[in-house]
Write a protein that binds this DNA or RNA. Structure first.
Length: 419
DNA sequence: TCTGGGGTCCTAGGACCC
DNA sequence: TCTGGGGTCCTAGGACCC
């Protein structure tokens, strides 16, 4: 059996942990730049605020309905996620952290446990120790545990947040209830095609023949089908080092000058380099892209990316920044209003087995230098030490008007309790 | 005025090898 | 008239996830 544990309305719940006065009130969390809605409390969902809603279009609703609006505070959510996962890791020797707010637990060897009770234990402990409410779905396969989790959440009053699929009868009942477009792994495109063929529920999907599914949805779809039939096909994955790392941002306004954008690109490259060093990888290639605001139909549009092969594998902020700005030079065109840029590093090699280059040497001095920079930044706060090619005055170029304090990661933001 | 960010996997087709 | 067979590697594009 597998358990899929999922935090309810995760970002909204994180904000609420430190603002208990907001219990029962509508909350939304906005994306970077306070652009669109990326998380909603149940109360906000009930008001009909959709996922991804542009914030400026819903300003009136927010005011009229007294919705509490937060800028995304990823430092807080990341730390809270850690805490939740750490509590959950006590409940199984095998765990797959699937996303910031979800994990699978293997319940192999738990045959003689009362799984309903076990799920309740997890739920109570997590909410008591972290303040985050969770839902637990338990079933013989990963895909079915996803389904069970949905039921646990949807009917939380009846299920108390824990639901188990453990018989053929409950499997079929669950799958007949679940719409095909809500199945994990069936996105908009596949759902559209399946519906056109009369497939309405997850159960209908499991009745299709293998060859048909294989042809329409590749091996991925077929695996999913088997998993939903109760044949364990998807395995628990361990956390792998990433294969790509990206730092991309929309700008706080429209940028037209090369210097403005190169400063951003340099900062993005430095951020990628930091993430690379965290997982002990070096990258061999790097992509830079820029584009204009695609929502502005009245302005001329331009969008381009470029991939460059590096002469040697590196994770030095200095090198990567230099290469990224060089790449930007090749695609930047005068006369456009740019809205977004990004740096993506790819083609990794482990840090300790980097090949020497025949023609161009990487500067070995960068290794201890980066170590020192990382140490200082960890001690004195992100971006304390920066390259001259980055902006020296402002660290964040984002609209974050409703940012909550970093309650759990910054000493000066820790809450005070009066007793 | 204002519209997010960061990932994964699979397949087909082209280019190449012997 | 008739023109083989068996591979690998890479990339772009498409699908999906949170």
């Amino acid at each position: 059996m597998f358990a899929l544990v999922d935090c309810n309305n995760f970002y909204a719940s994180c904000e609420r942990v430190f603002r208990p006065d907001l219990n029962g009130k509508p909350i939304v969390v906005l994306s970077n730049n306070d652009g669109c809605v990326i998380a909603r409390s149940n109360e906000a969902k009930d008001l009909g605020i959709p996922m991804g809603a542009p914030a400026f279009e819903y300003e009136k609703v927010f005011q009229q309905q007294k919705v509490h609006v937060f800028s995304a505070n990823f430092a807080l959510y990341g730390d809270m996620s850690h805490r939740v996962m750490s509590v959950l890791s006590d409940y199984s020797p095998d765990m797959e952290i699937y996303s910031i707010d979800e994990c699978f637990l293997s319940l192999k060897g738990f045959e003689f446990f009362n799984l309903q009770e076990y799920g309740m234990l997890m739920r109570n402990k997590v909410v008591k120790w972290t303040g985050i409410p969770i839902s637990v779905g338990i079933a013989p396969t990963k895909a079915l545990s996803k389904v069970a989790n949905r039921i646990a959440k949807k009917f939380s009053e009846r299920t108390k947040g824990v639901y188990i699929i453990d018989s053929e009868e409950s499997r079929i009942k669950a799958l007949k209830w679940l719409k095909v477009e809500d199945v994990w792994g069936i996105g908009r495109q596949h759902a559209k095609r399946l519906q056109a063929q009369g497939v309405k529920t997850a159960y209908d999907f499991t009745l299709l023949n293998d060859a048909f599914v294989r042809k329409q949805m590749s091996i991925v779809g077929l695996r999913l089908k088997h998993d939903l039939q109760g044949i364990p096909t998807l395995n628990l994955d361990e956390v792998q080092p990433k294969k790509n790392i990206a730092t991309t941002r929309s700008f706080d306004g429209n940028y037209t000058k090369f210097e403005q954008i190169s400063e951003r690109v340099s900062t993005f490259a430095v951020s990628c380099a930091e993430k690379l060093r965290k997982q002990n990888s070096c990258c061999n290639s790097l992509m830079v892209f820029v584009h204009t605001n695609r929502h502005r139909k009245d302005l001329p549009q331009y969008s381009r990316n470029i991939v460059i092969q590096l002469p040697f594998a590196t994770n030095s902020s200095i090198e990567l920044s230099k290469f990224a700005v060089q790449a930007l030079k090749q695609i930047f065109k005068e006369g456009y209003s740019y809205k977004k840029a990004g740096v993506i590093v790819q083609d990794f090699t482990p840090q300790d087995s980097v090949q020497k280059s025949l023609f161009e040497e990487r500067n070995e001095k960068h290794i201890p230098l980066m170590k020192a920079v990382d140490k200082l930044n960890a001690l004195f706060g992100q971006q304390k030490i920066r390259l001259a090619s980055q902006d020296a005055k402002r660290v964040w170029k984002m609209k974050q008007e409703k940012l909550s304090p970093n309650y759990t990661t910054k000493l000066s933001d820790i809450i005070t309790i009066k007793i």
